[in-house]
Design a protein around this nucleic acid. Structure first.
Lengths: 347, 347
DNA sequence: ATATTTTCTGCAAACGTTTTCAAGGTTTAA
DNA sequence: TTAAACCTTGAAAACGTTTGCAGAAAATAT
C-alpha cells in the first residue's frame, strides 16, 4: 500500500507534476498563474487520492525541515515544562514541530546537538545554554553553528558578562531576590540560608549574587555555612535543608534555588518538628503551579515560563524569516509573589 | 558557507561517491569489501571536512527518518514526563529522536497524527490513545495508519474491552485501587469520595470501576455525590475537594485521580481547618516525585512512568525491526505505597 | 598463457519534491 | 495579417543520499 505521490496526482488530473506542485503550494495567486479549471481538477485528484506531500522530499529539496530543536536542562523541573508548553504553542501555530531533548549526560550533549543540526534535521534551536559554560567542545560547536548561520535562541537568566552572540530571552531573578531579601531583613531575619541545588551552577548566579549583595548592603555577614550547594533533585535539597536546619544556630529563613526544591525544604522543616513560616521562612523561585497549593502556600518569584517559551519561538521565527536582522534581547520581568511561607523572624 | 557533501569527500579522497557511502555506513565488513587503504583515505577526508551525512537525503532515500512521534495527554502531569524521559532514554540509545506533542485541542490531533505520519516525518508513534475514544475521525485515522502498517505503540490503563490492535504497554490501577479501598474500609472508612479530574474520562476507568466494585463488595452504598468530576488542573480539583468536604456529611477519605490533583486536595483540607490523615485520608495515583515530600507524605500507587516509556520504545523498536511479529502486550505492575496521608477513620 | 575466481570500485537509477526557464497557445495592438 | 504581449503549462535540473549490478584489476587455478 504505497502512498500516492505527486506523479500519481498529476496522472489522474491529466497535468504535469509541476502543475500539481504549484497548485498544492498555492503558487496560483501571484507568481505562477493557474487557470481555475486546472486548479479545480488538481484539487479533486488530491482529495481523491488523499495525497499529502512527502516531508522528506520537501525537506531535501527546499532545505528546511519545519522542525526546531528544544533543549532543556532538567526534565523534572515543572518550570521548564511551562517553557516547553509555550514553545510548542507558538511553534505548532506556525507549522513547526519540536524535537525535544532534555539535557543528556554531560559529554554526549555537544556532540548530539552538533549531529542534529549539522544533519539539517532541524531548522533552528532553542536552548537554555547552561552547558555551554562547562564544555569547551560545546563552545566550539556553537561557534560552528553560528558560522553556518543556524538560528539559535538562548533562554537565560542574566548575562554574566558572557555574550554568546545569539538572540536571547532573558529573565533573571536579580531584582526579585533583592526585593525579597530586603523584605526578609526588614522582618527581622538575620541569618538567611541559601540552598543552591542546581545542575549547572552558573544558572543560578543571578540569585546568588543578589543574595550576597543584599547581605552586604544590610551590613550582615556572609556566612559560607549558610550557602549549601547540592544536586537538583528533591532528595538532594532535602538533605541540604536538614543540614542547614541542624546548624548550631540555625537560619530563620531559607531561599531555595527553585520551587521544586522548596517542596522538600518544607518537608525537612516539618520533619524537625518546626513550622513554616513561624520558625522558618521559605522562599522559592519560578512559581510553578503547585506553589500556590502547598501547605503553606509558597512565597516565590514568577518568571512565566510559558511566555518565555512563546517569546523564544517568536524570536526564532523572526530570524528564520529574516536572517540578517540585528541580534535581539527580550527581557521578561520577574514578579515577587509573597504568600504564606514567609513571615516575621521568630524572637 | 555550505556544508560538505558526499561528493566533496569523494573528490578529496580520490574515490567515487559510492565508495564514500560504503565506508561511512560500514558496509566494509560483510557485503561490500573495501580495501583498508581506501577506507583510511576516505575516513581522513571525512575528518578533514567535518562531513556528516545529510539526514534529509538519507531519509528520502532510505525511507526512514529515525524520528518517532510521542503524544501525551497532559503536559502538566509529572507522570507523563517520566514516560517521556523513559522513551527518550531508550530512543536516543537507539539513535532515534523524539517529536513531542502534548495533546492539542481535540480536533487538531487526528489531523496532526495523520499529517505527521503520512508525511513520513516520523517512523513510528507512541501515544496514550485517550482521544481515540472521543473522535470518530481519530478512529478512522488509526485504521488508516494500521492499514499502512505504521508501527504504533499505545500506553494504556487497561483495556476497557477495546482493542485497537496495536502493541500495548498496559498498566492499570485496578488492583491497587482494590487494595487501597479494602485497606481504607478496614480502617473504618465508610464514606469515601472520588475526585475524578481528568481530561479524558475513559482514562480513569480502571480506578473508577474498581472503586465502585470495592464499595459494593463491602456492602457500602455508592453515593453519586461522593464522585465529583472536574478538569485536570490543580484549581479544578481544589474546588472539587471543597465541594466534597463541605457536604453535610463529609467523606472521611478521598481518592484523587492522580497525585498532582491530590496536592490541591491537601490544600483544600487545610483551608477548611481540617487535617490529613486525622480528619480525612487522602490517596493519589502515580507516585510522582514530590509525593514523598508533601506534608503529609502522600499515599499513592506507583506506575513507574519511566519504565513504561522505556518499554514502549522497546516495543516500537522491535516492530520497526520486524514488522510482522505478533502483537505484543506488556503489562507493568502498579505498586501500592502507603505513606502518611491515609489513616484510620475519625470516630 | 588462458581461464576462473576473488577483490575492489564506480555507473546509473531512484527517492519525491521545488524551481527556473522556455515553449505553446491565445488575445490584443499595429 | 503580423508582431507583441500575455497567460498557462511543462521539461529538466537539482537537493544528497543509497543500492543493485557490472566492470576492472589482481590473484589463483588449470
Amino acid at each position: 500500500m504505497k502512498r500516492p505521490t505527486q506523479a500519481d496526482v498529476a496522472r489522474l488530473a491529466g497535468v504535469s507534476r509541476v502543475t500539481v506542485s504549484h497548485v498544492v503550494n498555492n503558487r496560483t495567486g501571484g507568481r505562477v498563474p493557474i487557470s481555475e479549471e486546472t486548479r479545480q481538477r488538481v484539487m479533486d485528484a488530491v482529495a481523491k487520492l488523499d495525497y499529502v506531500p512527502d516531508a522528506r522530499a520537501q525537506a531535501l529539496r527546499s532545505g528546511n525541515t519545519k522542525t526546531i530543536g528544544l533543549v532543556i536542562p532538567d526534565i523534572h523541573n515543572p518550570h521548564f515544562w511551562e517553557v516547553v508548553d509555550g514553545v510548542e504553542q507558538e511553534a505548532s501555530a506556525a507549522g513547526y514541530h519540536i524535537l525535544l531533548s532534555s539535557i543528556p549526560p554531560e559529554n554526549r550533549l555537544a556532540e548530539d546537538i552538533f549531529k542534529n543540526l549539522s544533519n539539517r534535521r532541524i531548522d533552528g534551536l532553542i536552548m537554555v545554554p547552561s552547558f555551554i559554560y562547562h564544555s569547551e567542545e560545546a563552545q566550539k560547536t556553537l561557534a560552528n553553528l553560528l558560522e553556518r548561520r543556524v538560528p539559535i535562541v538562548g533562554v537565560m537568566a542574566g548575562l554574566d558578562g558572557v555574550d554568546f552572540n545569539i538572540d536571547l530571552v532573558i529573565s533573571d531573578y536579580r531584582e526579585a531576590t533583592l526585593e525579597v531579601m530586603q523584605h526578609l531583613i526588614s522582618l527581622g531575619h538575620r541569618r538567611i540560608g541559601f540552598i543552591y541545588g542546581i545542575a549547572v551552577p552558573e544558572l543560578g548566579n543571578d540569585r546568588l549574587v543578589a543574595y550576597r549583595e543584599s547581605l552586604e548592603a544590610a551590613d550582615l555577614p556572609i556566612d559560607p555555612n549558610l550557602i549549601v550547594e547540592c544536586g537538583p533533585t528533591l532528595e538532594d535539597s532535602y538533605h541540604a535543608a536538614r543540614k542547614l536546619l541542624e546548624l548550631p544556630s540555625r537560619p530563620t529563613a531559607l531561599l531555595a534555588i527553585n520551587d521544586l526544591l522548596a517542596v522538600s525544604v518544607l518537608r525537612a522543616i516539618r520533619d524537625l518538628g518546626l513550622n513554616a513560616p513561624e520558625d522558618i521562612s521559605v522562599f522559592g523561585y519560578d512559581d510553578i503551579p503547585i506553589a500556590n497549593y502547598l501547605v503553606p502556600r509558597l512565597s516565590t518569584a514568577s518568571k512565566d515560563g510559558r511566555k518565555m517559551g512563546r517569546e523564544s519561538m517568536g524570536l526564532l521565527l523572526a530570524r528564520l524569516k529574516e536572517p540578517d536582522r540585528p541580534r535581539q534581547r527580550v527581557r521578561l520581568p520577574a514578579r515577587l509573589i509573597l504568600r504564606e511561607s514567609t513571615g516575621p523572624a521568630p524572637d
